[in-house]
């Protein structure tokens, strides 16, 4: 059974056809959001994380029809006016990207964290990444990226 739903993906409202039983992950990928990765399909790896109405969720754990009318943000929408989001830039600068398969999901969790807690401790960052598995890095540099972004953003708001 197909149904048409409305999703605002990265700020653009789109009308999208979905099968009732499909997850948001499947629908987003089919509609070009390839940053949303499938690593497990069981809510355990976080490679599929997106922001749903501003909160980071596993897109494989959300039924697409249930997201009807909501805002979805993915890594594709982070770059503005040719400028990367500071967390993306920090990922590059710090050397926190290895294979990069987990990176979009980590960015989503990191952005969610800083929206709730602009000045997290290292432990809080680690807790925030608890649902994002990375097999390449050991998390050291990814944690640093999020801490550095928090500092940078704090500096911007101070100024």
């Amino acid at each position: 059974m197909k149904q048409t739903i409305a999703l605002t993906i990265n700020g653009t409202r789109r009308s999208i056809e979905t099968e009732l039983g499909e997850t948001l992950l499947e629908v987003l990928r089919r509609n070009g959001m390839k940053s949303v990765k499938l690593g497990c399909d069981t809510g355990d790896c976080g490679a599929c994380a997106v922001l749903l109405d501003g909160s980071a969720v596993n897109a494989c754990m959300v039924l697409a029809v249930a997201a009807d009318g909501k805002d979805v943000d993915t890594v594709e929408g982070l770059e503005h006016d040719g400028r990367l989001h500071p967390m993306q830039q920090a990922m590059i600068d710090v050397g926190a990207v290895q294979c990069g398969f987990c990176t979009p999901g980590i960015l989503m969790s990191g952005i969610d964290l800083l929206s709730r807690n602009p000045d997290p401790t290292e432990d809080e960052v680690r807790e925030a990444l608890a649902g994002n598995l990375c097999r390449c890095t050991g998390y050291v540099k990814q944690v640093d990226v999020i801490l550095a972004t928090a500092r940078l953003q704090a500096g911007e708001t101070d100024a």
Binding site: K34, V36, G100
Partner: peptide, 17 residues
């Protein structure tokens, strides 16, 4: 520690896999 040559594509979620 030069930035990785593929880092931009990876952090922007380009369809590289």
């Amino acid at each position: 520690s030069e930035p990785k040559v593929d880092a931009y594509a990876l952090v922007t979620g380009k369809p590289v896999f």
